[in-house]
Design a protein around this nucleic acid. Structure first.
Length: 920
RNA sequence: GCUCUGGUGGUGGAAUAGGUAGACACGCAGGACUUAAAAUCCUGUGGGCAGCAAUGCCCGUACGGGUUCGAUUCCCGUCCGGAGCACCA
C-alpha cells in the first residue's frame, strides 16, 4: 500500500465535516484564541495557487493553538457585494446574486479540498440580508451619533439636540462640518428642515457636499483608497474630481485615536507607517492674514507648520476651489482668473498628476498684509494648493519651501532667505535646521526654537492658534450602484430620516436593469415602489468596505438576531488575536474596520478598542510565465538559446504546456489553431522556453490552479509546499517543479509507518539518537510556528525524517509525537497515521508534545581554534571546561604546534563554547 | 521627491545578542535497478588554482569604505530592485 493521498484526504475531509470537528463554542474553561483570514471576494475566476497562502498559514497556526490547549475561533466567509458581479450583470443580465452564489459555491469547493479547519457553521456572506441588517444597523448608529471632542467619543445626537435647545452651539466642541454659530433662541426658531440641516453637520454618518472621485465609466463615486494614480482600482477606469452631495463617514474625528492606539498593536512597522502616512498628522498653527480686494477687507485664515518663516512670506496662494478666489479676484483680473479656474476644473485627476512638475497660476489682483511686517504681498491662485487640506489657502515662503520656490521662480516673485548661510540661488532650503535671520524678534534662534516662539507671538497677538491637521479625509460612503447594501434612509419632504431598526433589514429591491436610469439616477431608481411609508428611499448603496468593517465581530455570534454580537460572545472572544491578509488593505479596510470598531466601542457594543491585535501580511505569490520566441513573420519558433540569431517576438505560452522550461511541442500545436502548423528550431532535441516572474493572471497564461495540484500531489503536499516556498511575508514566484521534493518527504513519512501495507509501528523504548532527533524537531517546530517561520519548519521536518529513516526508527514513542507535530502542516496524512497508531479521536484533540532539553544536550562541544582570526582546526572537548582549560588544551594540541610553528603567543581568546582565537 | 523594504549558487531560499556562508529543496551531472521508460535509491554540484589521489590553497553574501582577532550580520557612503504616499504648506 502506497501513500494514497486522494483516498486519505477525501476520507478525512468527510470525517471532519460529518463530525463537525472544528465547531467551537464558548468554553470558559479554556483560553480563547481568534485566528482570522481576510475573507475573499468570490470572483468568477476561482482561486489560484496564490490565494490560499495566507489561509494555509492561519490554518497551521490555528491547528497549532488547538494542540496547545486553546479554544480556537477560526471562521471563514465571503465579501460578497462588489463591482465585478455587477459589471458582469450589466453585460449578461444575470443577477449579481446568482453569480455570487455560484462563485461562493466554487470557492467553498476549492477551499474544502485544501483541508482547512474552519468552523463553517459561522460562515457569513456580506450580501445576506441577515448579515447586512447589521451593516445597516451600524450605519443608523452613526447617523444617530456625533463626535464630542471634549469627551473624545461618540455621543447620541438626541443629547446634542438638547444642548442646542438649551445653549445653542457655541460651547459644543464637535468634530463637524463648518456650521455658523447659533443661539438657543435661533434653534427654537428653526423649522424641521433647518434643524435637520444643522444636525447633518454633526452626525458621524452624514450627507454633505464634497469634492469626490467620480468615475464616469463605472457611473459611481469612489473612496480615496479605491483610486490609485487617477485610475479606479476595480476596472482601471479614469477618475475625475467632481463636487457632489454624498453620504460620508466622519472617520477624521477618530484620526488621533487611530494614530495613538496603533502603538500597542503587533503590526509590522511598515504597515503602521503606511497608516501613519495616510492619517498624516501635522502640527502647526492657523494664522489670520488681513486681505483686501481694494474695496473690502477680510480676515483670511491659513495653516502652516512653519510659523517661524512668516518674515519670508512674499505671496499668498489660494486653491482654485477656494471660496476666497471669488472674493479676492479684482474686476480687471476676473477674465484671466476664470479662464484659469475653468481649465483647472476640466482636468482629470490623472492629467493633474501628469503635470505635477508644471507650475501654473494666476494673480487675483488682491493683496494680503503680513501680520508681522505689515508688508503687502500679492494673492495668487494655483493648482498646487489643495482645497481639501488646511484652509485651502497658504502663505508662501519660497526660500524655505520647494513648491513655493518653483512658483516664485516661474512668476518672478521675491525670495527672502531666513536662515543663516542658506543658499537659495538654485533651490529652496527646506530643512528645519539652522539659525534664523532677517526675522525680527526670531533672529538668532534655531528653527526648533523659533517655531514655538512664533506661534506664541501669533497667539499673543490674537491672530491665530496652535492647530493639528490630518490628511485623513472622511470616507465617502455612497455608491451609485446596485450590488451593495441599501441605505436605511428615506426622505420626508426632502429631510433624510432613519428607517427604524425594527424594520431592518431593508432588502435590496429587484430592478429590470443594473444601469442608471434615463434621468441619471442610480440603478435603485428603477425599483418599483422603492419607498418607506410612501416616502422615497435613498437610491445609492453602500461601498465594499461597509460589509467588511465588522465581519470579525459577526463571526463571534453569527446567528444572533438581536444584536450584531451578543455581549457574552463578545466578552469571551473579545477581538482577533491573529489576522492574516495582504498589505493592499493597509489604507482601506484596516482603517475603516478600526474606525468602525472604535465607534461601536464608544457606544458600548464591543469591549475592545482595537479589532486586530496581531497582523501578519502574507506576500503575493507571483506567477512564473513561460515564453516562446517566434521568428518575425513566420510560424517558426526558436528555442531560448538560439533566439539571438533571429529577429523574434516573445509570446506567452501556457505554463501547463511546459515542464521544467521544456515545451511540449505537440501540446503547443494543439493549444491554439494559429499554432497548429508551428515549426520549431530545437537545441539538443528540445525546445527551451524563456521565463519571467510576473503577476499571476489569465492573460499571461501562468495561472496554476490549486485543484490540479491537489489531484496530482494532494492537499498536504500543496500546503507544505506553499509554506516551503519561502518566508510568509515575502512575495515569491510559484514554480510547480519544486513540489516533488515536498511530496517525496510525505512519502518518506508514510514509509516510517508502513511497508507494503504492513504496519511498522513498534512498541518499546526508542533509541537515544532518535529521541534527540525528535526533541530537536519539537523545539524547532514550536519556535518556528510562534515566529511564523513555516518554511524553515518544513526543512526541519525533512532533515528529521531523513535521520529517522536512516535510524530505521519505528517506535511509537517517536512516531506519535512526530505525527502531532506534523498535523498542522499535513492534517490529512496526520489523521491517517494517528488512526494507524490506534487512536479513535481526531488528532486535533491531541496535545502538542513537550520539548525536553535533556534529550538534546551534547556533553561535548566543538571549539574552533583560530589564529589571528583565521580558523585552523577544531577541538572536540567536554562542554564543562572553563575557558582557561580549553585554552590550555588548545595550545597543547599537536595541530596547534604545527600552525604556530614557534611563533610567540600574545593572547588566547576563548569565546564561550565557540571559538578560541590565538593572537601571535 | 519622501517613507518603508530588500540585494546570498543555475533556481526558491538557510544561517544574523558578529563565530566553519550556501542548511533544506529544485535543477543539473554521473551511477544502481529495468529489455526500456517512469518511479525509486545512491554520489557529486559556488568559482578558481594545484594534485593520479586523499587533499590543499586562493576568491566569494550588489559595490566602496569603517569598527572588530573575526562582518552576509553592526556603522557610513554609492548603485540596483520592490512596496506605499505623492504638490498635505
Amino acid at each position: 500500500m502506497e501513500y494514497n493521498f486522494l483516498e486519505i484526504e477525501g476520507k478525512w475531509q468527510r470525517y471532519w465535516a460529518d463530525r463537525g470537528t472544528f465547531r467551537v463554542d464558548i468554553d470558559a474553561a479554556k483560553p480563547k484564541y481568534y485566528v482570522l483570514d481576510m475573507f475573499p471576494y468570490p470572483s468568477g475566476a476561482g482561486l489560484h495557487v496564490g490565494h490560499p497562502l495566507g489561509y494555509i498559514a492561519s490554518d497551521i497556526f490555528s491547528r497549532y493553538k488547538r494542540l496547545k490547549g486553546f479554544n480556537v475561533l477560526h471562521p471563514m466567509g465571503y465579501d460578497a457585494f462588489g463591482l465585478p458581479a455587477e459589471q458582469y450583470a450589466i453585460q449578461t443580465g444575470k443577477h449579481p446574486e446568482a453569480t455570487t452564489t455560484q462563485n461562493v459555491a466554487r470557492y467553498r469547493e476549492q477551499l474544502d479540498k485544501i483541508g482547512f479547519s474552519y468552523d463553517w457553521s459561522r460562515e457569513v456572506k456580506t450580501c445576506d440580508p441577515a448579515y447586512y441588517k447589521w451593516t445597516q444597523w451600524a450605519f443608523l448608529q452613526m447617523f444617530n451619533h456625533w463626535y464630542n471632542l471634549d469627551t473624545q467619543r461618540a455621543e447620541p445626537i438626541a443629547e446634542l439636540e438638547a444642548r442646542f435647545a438649551a445653549e445653542g452651539n457655541a460651547q459644543v466642541h464637535a468634530a463637524c462640518s463648518e456650521t455658523p454659530r447659533f443661539s438657543a433662541e435661533d434653534w427654537a426658531s428653526m423649522d424641521e428642515a433647518a434643524r435637520s440641516a444643522v444636525l447633518m453637520n454633526y452626525r458621524i454618518a452624514y450627507q454633505g457636499e464634497t469634492s469626490v472621485n467620480w468615475c464616469p465609466a463605472l457611473g459611481t463615486v469612489l473612496a480615496n483608497d479605491e483610486v490609485k494614480e487617477g485610475i479606479s482600482i476595480r476596472g482601471g477606469h479614469p477618475v475625475e474630481q467632481k463636487k457632489m452631495k454624498q453620504w460620508q463617514l466622519r472617520v477624521s474625528a477618530y484620526a488621533e485615536r487611530l494614530l495613538t492606539d496603533m502603538e500597542d498593536l503587533e503590526w509590522t512597522d511598515s504597515l503602521k507607517d503606511m497608516q501613519r502616512n495616510w492619517i498624516g498628522r501635522s502640527q502647526g498653527a492657523e494664522m489670520i492674514f488681513k486681505v483686501s480686494n481694494g474695496s473690502e477687507e477680510f480676515d483670511m485664515t491659513i495653516f502652516t507648520t512653519r510659523a517661524d518663516t512668516v518674515f519670508g512670506v512674499t505671496f499668498m496662494v489660494l486653491a482654485p476651489e477656494s471660496e476666497w478666489v471669488e472674493k479676492l479676484t479684482r474686476p480687471e483680473k476676473k477674465e484671466e482668473v476664470e479662464a484659469y479656474l475653468l481649465a483647472a476644473r476640466k482636468k482629470t485627476e490623472r492629467e493633474r498628476m501628469a503635470e505635477t512638475r508644471k507650475v501654473t497660476g494666476v494673480f487675483t489682483g488682491s493683496y494680503a498684509k503680513n501680520p508681522f511686517t505689515g508688508e503687502e504681498v500679492p494673492v495668487w491662485v494655483s493648482e498646487y494648493v489643495l482645497s481639501g487640506y488646511g484652509t485651502g489657502a497658504i502663505m508662501a515662503v519660497p526660500a524655505h519651501d520647494s513648491r513655493d520656490y518653483a512658483f516664485a521662480r516661474q512668476f518672478n516673485l521675491p525670495i527672502i532667505p531666513l536662515i543663516e548661510g542658506a543658499d537659495v540661488s538654485q533651490e529652496s532650503f527646506d530643512a528645519k535646521e539652522g539659525i534664523m535671520c532677517n526675522s525680527g524678534f526670531l533672529n538668532g534662534m534655531s528653527v526648533q526654537e523659533a517655531i514655538p516662539a512664533a506661534i506664541d507671538r501669533v497667539e499673543a497677538m490674537g491672530i491665530g492658534q496652535r492647530k493639528i491637521n490630518y490628511r485623513l479625509r472622511d470616507a465617502i460612503f455612497s455608491r451609485q450602484r446596485y450590488w451593495g447594501e441599501p441605505f436605511p434612509i428615506y426622505f420626508k419632504e426632502g429631510i433624510p430620516c432613519p428607517i427604524p431598526v425594527e424594520a431592518l433589514p431593508l432588502t435590496l429591491p429587484e430592478v429590470d436593469k443594473f444601469l442608471p436610469t434615463e434621468s441619471g439616477e442610480p440603478p435603485l431608481g428603477r425599483a418599483k415602489d422603492w419607498t418607506y411609508e410612501g416616502y422615497p428611499i435613498e437610491k445609492s448603496t453602500m461601498p465594499g468596505f461597509a460589509g467588511s468593517s465588522a465581519y470579525y465581530l459577526r463571526y463571534m455570534d453569527p446567528h444572533n438576531d438581536e444584536a450584531l454580537v451578543g455581549r457574552e460572545a463578545n466578552q469571551y472572544w473579545r477581538n482577533v488575536d491573529l489576522y492574516i491578509g495582504g498589505t493592499e488593505h493597509a489604507t482601506g479596510h484596516l482603517i475603516y474596520a478600526r474606525f468602525w470598531n472604535k465607534f461601536l466601542y464608544d457606544l458600548g457594543h464591543v469591549c475592545e478598542k482595537e479589532p486586530f491585535r496581531k497582523l501578519v501580511n502574507q506576500g503575493m505569490i507571483q506567477g512564473r510565465s513561460n515564453f516562446v520566441y517566434r521568428i518575425k513573420n513566420t510560424n517558426t519558433f526558436v528555442s531560448l538559446g538560439l533566439k539571438d540569431q533571429y529577429e523574434t517576438t516573445e509570446i506567452h505560452v501556457d505554463v501547463n504546456l511546459v515542464n521544467n522550461d521544456r515545451l511540449d511541442t505537440e501540446a503547443f500545436r494543439a493549444w491554439m489553431p494559429d499554432y497548429a502548423e508551428a515549426e520549431f528550431i530545437l537545441e539538443d532535441g528540445e525546445y527551451i522556453c524563456g521565463w519571467a516572474v510576473e503577476k499571476m493572471s489569465k492573460s499571461m497564461f501562468n495561472v496554476v490552479n490549486p485543484d490540479r495540484i491537489c489531484e496530482e500531489y494532494g492537499a498536504d503536499t500543496l500546503r507544505m509546499y506553499e509554506m516551503f516556498l519561502g518566508p510568509l511575508e515575502q512575495s515569491k514566484p510559484w514554480d510547480t517543479k519544486g513540489i516533488d521534493g515536498v511530496h517525496r518527504f510525505l512519502r518518506k513519512v508514510w514509509k516510517l509507518f508502513f511497508r507494503e501495507g504492513e504496519s511498522l509501528i513498534e512498541e518499546g523504548a526508542a533509541d537515544k539518537k532518535a529521541l534527540k532527533v525528535l526533541h530537536k524537531l519539537i523545539h524547532k517546530v514550536e519556535t518556528d510556528i510562534e515566529n511564523f517561520s513555516f518554511n524553515t519548519s518544513v526543512s526541519a521536518f525533512m532533515i528529521a525524517v531523513n535521520e529517522l529513516t536512516d535510524l530505521q526508527c519505528h517506535q511509537r514513542e517517536i512516531l506519535e509525537p512526530l505525527t502531532i507535530l506534523l498535523s498542522p502542516f499535513a492534517p490529512h496524512l496526520a489523521e491517517e497515521l494517528w488512526e494507524a497508531l490506534g487512536h479513535s479521536e481526531s488528532i486535533s484533540s491531541a496535545t502538542f508534545p513537550t520539548y525536553v532539553e535533556a534529550y538534546t544536550v551534547e556533553d561535548t562541544c566543538e571549539y574552533p581554534v583560530s589564529f589571528n582570526g583565521k580558523m585552523r582546526f577544531k577541538l572536540t572537548l567536554s562542554k564543562s571546561l572553563t575557558p582557561k582549560e580549553v585554552e590550555a588544551l588548545a595550545l597543547a594540541d599537536p595541530n596547534c604546534e604545527k600552525y604556530l610553528a614557534g611563533a610567540p603567543v600574545k593572547k588566547v581568546i576563548v569565546v564561550p563554547a565557540k571559538i578560541i582565537n590565538i593572537v601571535y
